[in-house]
Structures are given as structure tokens and as C-alpha cells.
Design a protein around this nucleic acid. Structure first.
Lengths: 131, 131
DNA sequence: CTATCTGTTATACTCTAACTATAACAGATA
DNA sequence: TATCTGTTATAGTTAGAGTATAACAGATAG
């Protein structure tokens, strides 16, 4: 796998895991239907406990990113990732709020901020291995 | 004060405090030189411990938002808030990254995302009591 | 001078989240 | 039957968040 954790980070391991898997989906390294490692093998691979991996998987399942067949294993959701709904957008807004508020204080212009976001968006499009 | 905390939130109280004060500065409810309540009075006002307020203040001081005169009290930094430097922008980027990556997965278009940010930026300009 | 305000520091305690360590269970499959 | 899957349960450690007191040092108002 392409998982790369920072054990010194204040960001919990299972959150880092979630982010990296989502990033994998965004960059299409992981496509709908693709299999993910079992909780045990991924845990062993990274050198962490299986419960930590399981916690990440449960969260990803809850958010509609993956399907977990009891004996078949874990799979990126075959129907694709659920589109953003109002709840998601509301949460997104709450997460953006403090970032923008501090940016305003630090004299980051709206243009500059949007440009940064735009740049990040393009990071995904570039690495797309579209058919 | 305009402080409004959610004690049920997973977001630590001191972080909420930091965000709200920064938001106050961004909306110019708090201007450079303005006095902030003492750790004790704010703590009593909100109904929390003075150490929790102090933790928030220390962080804000570290980030250049406020000045703390040992006996005079706490003041919004008279010279204004330090402009965004490379470190800040790098951290900002790291915080935006997972948000954008999930948005991409959920089919939020770049335009839609930028529009949301833009909207948040305008929230601050609107409430500005500029001279 | 004294009382009272400020931030600061120190100690100690509770509670929760994160993470680990084992173990066991149940269903599928080779 | 052995082995793989996810799942559940129990138990332990560690760190962060928050609280509770107390005390110190400098400034200031009475």
C-alpha cells in the first residue's frame, strides 16, 4: 500500500489512515470495487494494532467510502462515493470557517486563498489515470 | 464577551476559545489594542477553569494575536496580526488538503468549493465596521 | 503600607480518547 | 479441517483536556 504514517503527529493514526485512503480514492489510485487489505494484514504491514485499522475502516464504511463483506473483505464502494449532501457541506463549512477567519486576520486575500484551493484541486486532476 | 461555547463538542474548549477570539479579530469586533478580559474574569464569566483560558491565551500569544503585559492584562496585538508567512501557508495547505481530497471524492466541483470559500470570506467583509 | 488586581507556576486529581494486547466467535472457503 | 475474513470483548497503558487549589511576583489604588 501507499500508506505513510507519521507517528509523531498529533493527528491520530486512524485519522491519518482515513485521510490517506480517501486521498487514494481522490487520486484514483483506488477505484470503486478495488480490494483493500484485511485489517490484520494492513495492521501488520504498518506495524500497528488491528483495532486501529478497524477503527479507520468502520469510519470509512460509515461515510460510504467502503463496503465490508464479512468474509470477502474490504472493498472501495462499487457504486462510487456518495455525493456531497447538505450535511456534508455544512460540516465542510464548519471546518473551513476557522481557516478562513485566521487567514483574514493574517491578511491573506480572498484571491490568494482561492488560488491555493485551486492549486490543491489540480493536484488530483493531474494524477488521474483516467480511461 | 461574545464567547459562545459548545461543551458537547469534541472540539476542546480552549480551541473553541481560540477560534472565537480569532473570529472576533477577523470581524473587527476586536481591534488592535483592545483589551481582553483577564484569565480569571473570563473563566468565571464562561464558567470554566482559569487554566483553560490561560491555555488559549498562551496559544494566541504564541501565534502573535495578543500581547500579555504581566500586570496590565491582555491586549489584541497593537501592531496588528502578523502577516501569513511560508510556515503558516504550509500549515494551511496541510489543513485544506484532506478537505479538498474528500470533496473531490464526493463530486464537489472546484467551482462549487471555491464559491463556498468565497462566501465565507464575504461573511467577514460584511460585518466589518470599517472607518 | 496594605489590599487587590494582574499573569504565572506548581501540584494533583479525574475523565476520556487513542492505542495496544490477547482472545475468542462466526461465517466462508480452499 | 485448517485458514482466512470481520467482529466483539476485556483489559491495560499513555497522553491530553479540564478542574481544583494554592502560592508567587509585580503593579496599582486605597
Amino acid at each position: 500500500m501507499f500508506i505513510n504514517l507519521d507517528f509523531e503527529s498529533k493527528e491520530p493514526i486512524y485519522v491519518q489512515l482515513i485521510h490517506q485512503i480517501i486521498e487514494g480514492v481522490a487520486k484514483k489510485k483506488l477505484q470503486p470495487g478495488d480490494a483493500l487489505p484485511s485489517v490484520r494484514s494492513l495492521a501488520a504491514d504498518i506495524g500497528i494494532n488491528l483495532h486501529t485499522v478497524n477503527k479507520a475502516y468502520q469510519q470509512l464504511k460509515q461515510d460510504g467510502f467502503i463496503l465490508i463483506h464479512r468474509q470477502k473483505g474490504v472493498v472501495v464502494h462499487p457504486d462510487g462515493i456518495p455525493k456531497a449532501d447538505k450535511v456534508y457541506k455544512s460540516v465542510l463549512k464548519e471546518k473551513l470557517h476557522p481557516l478562513i477567519s485566521e487567514s483574514v486576520c493574517r491578511s491573506v486575500t480572498e484571491e490568494e486563498f482561492l488560488q491555493l484551493c485551486s492549486q490543491l484541486f489540480h493536484e488530483f486532476k493531474e494524477e488521474t489515470g483516467d480511461v
